[in-house]
Design a protein around this nucleic acid. Structure first.
Ligand code: MN
Ligand code: MN
Ligand code: ZN
Ligand code: ZN
Lengths: 139, 139
DNA sequence: TTCTACATTATAATAGTTCTAAACTGTTGA
DNA sequence: TCAACAGTTTAGAACTATTATAATGTAGAA
């Protein structure tokens, strides 16, 4: 209830109309203790568990893209067939567990600043992200 | 001519039969001054420029996957709809130019060793790769 | 040369994502 | 208050990269 109005406000100030679909998706994505990673398919499952009112797949895609554009979600480049999204929009890095196909955050503080001793003329750096692929010790 | 037999040898010792399709793809991928990045679609175009004998799309996919499995190619995780491959299989990093959708190598020597002060129990590190997203200075 | 496992091929199938266009709804301002 | 309109949702079609299928072809062994 409390968060409900917060999300309405958040959406409005973002220039997004607070529809019931968007509010529900806000609740699922942002009303959590911890941030998490998800695929569109994961989100669709969470939605159907959380409500009886279905939200169409197109709307799920639309909403996720809108939230990404507003900076409320990040897309994580994992070499995979589907896009992975992240509710943690702070600057951080990832472990990718190749056995369990699982993304795990690495806090920015746990990575020594990455120094790159080369530049591209006419270009500015937008982000620097580290991906650490891991696997089971006996592999 | 010279490389031709080299590739036959390379394929044979890898347990891959040296078919004319695979040899042609070897020539395109590995008989170059510099390494490069490509999508399957890029490779298909290069093949049609290089020969009149068509190679089916399925074979291109099969061959790229086989070469990746043998360690002759790397797949680069860029957030995109298609897979990017790299003929540079040494340990290195990348700039990704978001305006030109272009991948550029960063030599491993140009990146200070990345120190990660956290581990996952039961997992070993397989790779540590840095992706630096860049864009035009006036963006 | 003959045999067989491996490889190629055209084509169908799959799956994630985007598009379309009609129906619906939040917001504005008369 | 409510008509009007721009923004949103929706089902389903379309799109596109990739993988599967199964028939045909071929390299290498015997
Ligand atoms: Mn892949
Ligand atoms: Mn994307
Ligand atoms: Zn994360
Ligand atoms: Zn590279």
């Amino acid at each position: 209830m409390l968060n409900y109005s917060n999300y309405i406000e958040k959406l409005r100030t973002s220039g997004l109309r607070p529809t019931k679909q968007r509010i529900k998706i806000c609740e699922i994505l942002f009303n959590t203790e911890k941030t998490f990673h998800f695929t569109i398919n994961d989100l669709v499952k969470k939605i159907s568990k959380a409500t009886n009112n279905k939200i169409s797949l197109a709307t799920v895609y639309n909403t996720v893209h809108a939230f990404k554009k507003k900076g409320y979600l990040k897309e994580i480049p994992i070499n995979s067939d589907q896009s992975y999204f992240d509710t943690n929009t702070s600057h951080h890095h990832h472990f990718y567990d190749e056995n369990q196909k699982d993304l795990i955050d690495i806090d920015d503080a746990d990575v020594e600043p990455v120094k790159i001793n080369t530049r591209i003329p006419g270009k500015k750096i937008k982000s620097v992200e580290v991906l650490v692929k891991v696997e089971d010790i006996n592999s």
